[in-house]
Simulated assay, not measured.
Amino acid sequence: MTGVLVGLAVGYGAHRHLVRQRGAEAVRSAAAEVRAELAPAGDLLAACLAAGAGPRESAEAVGRSLDGPVAERLRQVAAELRLGGEPAVVWPRLAALPGAEGLARCMERAGISGVPAVESASRIAAELRAEQARTATAQARRAGVLVTLPLSACFLPAFLTLGVAPVLIGLAGGLLGRN
């Protein structure tokens, strides 16, 4: 009876842990998807602004040309601005996406004061690309380290058993006077 109760408790705990782990992985995956889409969206926004479009028109064009959560949010922002929404209220909706704060702030300033945002949008897109490259490099390094763990778990015991143990046994036999 005790074993059944312990088994049920362990099973329930493992289930809860897996559910939490899957939820955290889904959040990380969504954030990674948004971060991957931000740099191209920033470049396209900068290109639209350089071509003479305003922040609303740029958001609308980029939202139509891309897919994903960033494009959806840009379409939503453009629609609200077209309906007369205040840029100070509407652009922070884009900033709610992870990593989009700088781009949203830049576009908000351009919408409120009319400040040219081409240079700052291009700079922010370049920073986002650099951050994405750093993240990819760190993940590649981490993968390299994780690959060596199974190798060391297999090869180290084999080396000790086949390489070091016979030498130690031979030395011990020689020291103890048994030849």
Results as ranks from 00 to 15, higher is better:
A130E: 14
G85V: 08
A61S: 11
A79W: 00
V145H: 04
V70Q: 05
L44D: 10
V118T: 15
Q132N: 09
A110E: 05
I112K: 07
A143Y: 13
G85F: 13
D43C: 15
A53S: 09
G68F: 02
E86N: 15
D43S: 14
P92A: 14
A100H: 04
H15C: 12
A39C: 06
S113W: 11
A143N: 06
I124L: 15
A117L: 05
L44T: 03
S65Y: 07
A32H: 04
D67Y: 00
E119W: 00
A46E: 05
G114D: 00
E101N: 07
G85E: 03
Q21D: 11
R16W: 14
R75G: 08
A117E: 03
E127S: 11
A41V: 12
A61H: 05
A104D: 02
P116W: 05
A32I: 08
S113D: 13
A79R: 05
G11H: 06
R73T: 13
G85M: 06
A24C: 04
A136R: 13
P116H: 10
P69R: 12
H17Y: 12
Q21T: 09
L97G: 07
G13I: 07
V89S: 14
E86M: 12
Q76T: 07
A30E: 10
L83F: 09
G68W: 03
L49R: 04
V147D: 00
R82W: 05
M107Y: 11
V70Y: 01
E86D: 15
L81H: 01
P55N: 06
E119Y: 01
R20H: 09
L38A: 08
A96D: 12
Q139H: 11
C106P: 00
L103N: 04
R64A: 12
A143F: 14
R109A: 14
L38P: 00
E25H: 07
R22E: 13
A51Q: 07
D43V: 15
G52D: 04
R35V: 08
V70F: 00
G144V: 05
A88R: 15
H15V: 10
V10F: 08
G111F: 00
E86W: 10
D67E: 15
R109W: 15
G102Y: 01
G11D: 04
R105K: 12
S65N: 03
Q76G: 09
R82P: 07
V89A: 15
H17R: 11
A32D: 01
R134F: 10
A140N: 02
R109M: 11
R141G: 07
V10K: 09
E33V: 10
L49C: 07
A50Q: 14
A79I: 01
G68M: 13
V90H: 09
A140C: 08
H17Q: 12
S58A: 14
A36P: 02
V77K: 02
I124K: 03
V34A: 05
V118D: 06
V70D: 04
Y12W: 15
G68T: 04
G42V: 02
E72P: 00
P92C: 10
G42R: 00
L44S: 07
P92N: 10
A125M: 11
A78C: 05
G102E: 06
L38H: 09
S122Y: 00
E119N: 02
R20Y: 06
V10C: 03
P98D: 08
A126M: 08
A78M: 09
S122W: 01
L49T: 03
C48Q: 13
A121I: 11
A79Q: 07
A96Q: 11
S113V: 14
E86K: 14
A88E: 10
G111Y: 01
R93C: 02
G85C: 06
